[in-house]
Design a binder for these strands. Structure first.
Length: 280
DNA sequence: CATATGTCCTGAGAGC
DNA sequence: TGCTCTCAGGACATAT
């Protein structure tokens, strides 16, 4: 489930294609949803174009082309952006052939096909992802900004952290990890959190995301997520609560990790050290 | 306006 | 062993 650390790892894995030119495009398998324009137009619009920059926008990898056009990879659950051979031939979706740089090909692979690759003009980009569509990036948002954007919400903090319009990049896995390290109960309403709790959430958010980037993300037991070289991430070995239901708490050793469902998503937490009240 | 729910998708794993 | 069923959750559309 690529979230900010996994998508940032993908971005870094293909960052060296900045400055290269696209010399070929092949759509490898029918994608009903992912690519919004017909293959011939995709090839015509991409061939010969130079990649100006490789960026990350929340959980998307963005190739910025000249004249404001952007090719946007949105992996959702099982999408991968690769420079090495993909895990299987079967789920390859798109291949870009490049010249003028160190990387000859970039692939988009997606087993479940919930993800997408979209080519957007400047105006399409602004309409879909511009001002107001995404909050500030979770890696760089200030504590005051985070608090300002969420403190009037009555939603549980775990649910609110997944709202990409509030803050961009956090997904289901890291939301549980962040709140555990901050010692905050996932069901605590945003509007009832103290200043100290906001500081803890903000600090742990950035600490967890930075550490997870250093480990190149989390490859869960299904083994789907890989970096651009088709290698596993390492942060799954450092999860303190995610997918550890029934195990004892690594932080306080008193509680057992509990799984609950919030907004149709699994939440993991320790009932002993994540209290609804502020820690003294 | 804020919040909640349904939808898409495939393959791993559970249970019989 | 082999079948059927459930579940995983990102973003968006639609409903309340």
């Amino acid at each position: 489930m690529p979230e900010l650390p996994e998508v940032e790892t993908m971005r870094r894995g293909i960052a060296a294609i900045a400055g290269s030119s696209i010399v070929g495009v092949e759509r490898l398998r029918c994608q009903r949803r992912p690519i919004l324009i017909e293959p011939r137009a995709l090839s015509r619009r991409l061939t010969g174009r130079r990649i100006a920059a490789v960026e990350r926008l929340g959980k998307r990898v963005v190739l910025r082309l000249e004249e404001g056009e952007r090719l946007i990879f949105e992996p959702r659950m099982t999408g991968l952006v690769l420079v090495a051979d993909p895990p299987t031939r079967e789920h390859l979706r798109l291949r870009l052939d490049l010249s003028g740089g160190p990387i000859p090909h970039v692939w988009y692979w997606d087993r479940r096909g919930l993800g997408s690759v979209r080519l957007l003009t400047e105006s399409q980009f602004m309409e879909r992802l511009g001002n107001g569509h995404l909050g500030p990036d979770a890696l760089t948002i200030s504590c005051n900004k985070l608090r300002e954007r969420l403190e009037r919400s009555r939603r549980p903090i775990k649910v609110a952290l997944l709202d990409q319009r509030a803050v961009a990049g956090i997904g289901n896995l890291y939301a549980s990890e962040i709140l555990h390290l901050a010692g905050v109960h996932p069901a605590k309403r945003c509007d009832l959190l103290t200043a100290l709790q906001w500081q803890g959430i903000h600090a742990q958010m950035q600490a967890v995301l930075q550490l997870a980037i250093r480990y190149e993300g989390s490859t869960l037991s299904d083994g789907t997520y890989r970096n651009a070289l088709n290698q596993s991430g390492g942060f799954q070995n450092h999860h303190r609560v995610y997918d550890r239901a029934g195990d004892s708490c690594l932080t306080c050793s008193r509680g057992r990790i509990t799984r609950v469902v919030q907004a149709q998503r699994a939440t993991f937490f320790c009932p002993a050290c994540q209290t609804k009240r502020p820690r003294s």
